[in-house]
């Protein structure tokens, strides 16, 4: 599906005004009876310093725009292969640029903007951590790829054979790539199917978004992450 076709399906034809420039998306769209700000990355973007700053600037602009009015929700569209890998980006402190984006997301949340993420394409590692993963509610479109690292690279780093990793990937949601695995662990709230009415699902997701981080509890409930919630509780209660 083309990008425009996906926007049409998400917001209805004519229900969106989103500019795509390079690897960056910015605009607004209609979700139910609400107008939302849309900020995102496209074309499996590798997120570098300048792109991180464009995302951050768009979030700050959204917060500033609603300083004297009811804060409009922000919808992140995430399509990222991860962080840009270069010596230049590391030298300037790409982690610091990502932290800045995260602070901007947090500012928007504290100012009362509800935050939604739709994963379209890929959500990988640092690029996902930077903004999409920090939303109140995270939805994956059908065929969305979500991972830290593919199994081949993982085999190289951990020195565990690819055959063994592939064999275990079938039974363990804990390390194998896949949106379904993240859903079971509470890292993704919803996975949509092609047959779903996406505008309805978007409106419902927005209505159910809250500003508390319930992912560990969801992971426990879905049986994919049994120790995170009780361990955090053990420490918090000590």
């Amino acid at each position: 599906m083309s990008e425009q076709a996906i926007f049409d399906r998400l917001f209805g034809a004519g229900g969106h005004d989103i500019a795509s420039t390079g690897l960056f998306l910015h605009g607004s769209a209609q979700v139910g009876d609400k107008r939302v700000t849309v900020i995102g990355t496209r074309d499996h973007a590798a997120i570098d310093g300048p792109l991180a700053l464009r995302i951050a600037a768009a979030i700050l602009q959204a917060v500033r725009a609603d300083a004297d009015t009811a804060p409009r929700p922000i919808l992140f569209i995430a399509d990222t292969q991860g962080q840009a890998l270069s010596r230049h980006d590391e030298l300037l402190g790409l982690n610091g640029y990502f932290a800045h984006v995260a602070r901007c997301v947090d500012l928007a949340r504290r100012h009362g903007h509800r935050l939604l993420t739709v994963i379209n394409g890929e959500a990988v590692s640092g690029g996902f951590l930077a903004f999409g993963m920090l939303a109140d509610r995270i939805c994956a479109l059908p065929d969305a790829q979500v991972r830290v690292m593919d199994l081949r690279a993982m085999a190289r780093v951990t020195r565990i054979s690819l055959e063994r990793l592939e064999e275990l990937a079938g039974v363990s949601p804990v390390f194998a790539p896949g949106a379904e695995n993240y859903w079971r662990m509470g890292g993704i709230h919803e996975i949509w199917s092609t047959d779903d009415n996406w505008p309805d699902r978007l409106a419902a997701a927005l209505a159910s978004a809250t500003d508390t981080d319930g992912r560990a509890a969801i992971g426990l409930e879905r049986g994919g992450r049994l120790l995170a919630a009780p361990t955090a509780q053990l420490v918090a209660d000590a």
Partner: peptide, 21 residues
Amino acid sequence: VRLHEANAGLIAISEIMRAVL
């Protein structure tokens, strides 16, 4: 992130980020 439990690790880091904020 610990690759042996990569998905749990990535989500955990996101949770730590939100908690620090």
